[in-house]
Design a binder for these strands. Structure first.
Lengths: 177, 177
DNA sequence: TGTGAAATATAACGCTA
DNA sequence: TAGCGTTATATTTCACA
């Protein structure tokens, strides 16, 4: 695996400071695309796929991590197999929008078990919560116990999720190239 | 890295068939939590953290993959650093809901560059698209060129995303244990 | 970019409880 | 059946040319 990196002598990331996107060349882009499809690919396979030397490939991936472009790697779980087959988007609207209220609630909601992702958004609603639960009853309990129980929450709206898909992402069509 | 696996003789996943969630023991749970935090952790470190033998640790992770609980690993990208600092949720409502219409549009939207995630939902709206774009102009163009350009799309509503966070996930509080 | 050597990870095996 | 330790193989990492 292209694991944690500690650079000792070289200083690769200097190049992507002020305008990172424009310093990403075609090879970097291809690397990111390949790694987005499967982060578990070995350096050898990755190098072979792009026609790079293994040493070069490892170096560039390391540089992408150092530059902060790649922020980490996550596993993907089958939530249904884990016993949480029901997903929903819960839209949360506050009654009071002081900075403290908003931030505290955001922290609390994101830390609530069952929350897969939390969006802080502009507009009439304040947060969208993507949650996964065991069943309809658990969903009701989730909203009552962990969302509307917060004083600042004025209103919620729960939308059942039939399906979620990872999208194409941003890397398929180079922006300025 | 706990990479792609090709089992040759052993058949580990037999145990989690009919009721997978209930066969997940505490060790599996801890493994998934650790891997969710950082999928790039080495097997050695993972084994050490949980107090398992390395061989056992590797075996269990492999079994989780074989069972389909772990469906893959993805890298996380800093979208802003990549030149896409603006994120939005676009709610999409159709005018006609034939199965073919819905599925075709879902496919098309998910495959559109810039789409990070696509939700197919119940209710008045049909899809929520989480998108990342270069700037406000690109967002407008995205909606006009890639969403409302589809005939079946009756209405869209775009909500700016201030911030997204990964939530606590489903694994922090064991369900039946 | 390539090479080689050391460190590490993985897969497979046999043994134990 | 699950866990452990060992071995052989594969892979990564790092230093140097």
């Amino acid at each position: 695996m292209l694991g944690p990196i500690t650079l000792r002598n070289a200083q690769p990331p200097a190049r992507r400071d002020s305008d990172p996107a424009n310093t990403l060349d075609h090879v970097d882009r291809q690397l990111l695309i390949a790694l987005t499809e499967d982060a578990g690919v070995t350096n050898k396979a990755l190098a072979g796929r792009l026609g790079l030397a293994e040493s070069t490939c490892a170096y560039r991936v390391r540089a992408l991590r150092e530059a902060g472009i790649i922020t980490g790697t996550r596993i993907q779980l089958d939530l249904a197999l884990l016993g949480y087959p029901l997903q929903a988007i819960i839209m949360v609207r506050l009654g009071s929008h002081t900075m403290a209220n908003v931030n505290q609630l955001y922290d609390a909601l994101a830390a609530t078990p069952g929350v897969v992702q939390a969006f802080h958004v502009a507009g009439a609603d304040d947060f969208y919560l993507h949650v996964a639960v065991e069943n309809a009853e658990a969903l009701r309990d989730f909203v009552l116990q962990h969302v509307t129980s917060h004083r600042v929450v004025r209103q919620t709206e729960t939308h059942l999720v039939f399906d979620v898909r990872g999208g194409a992402g941003v890397l398929t069509a180079p922006p300025g190239r």
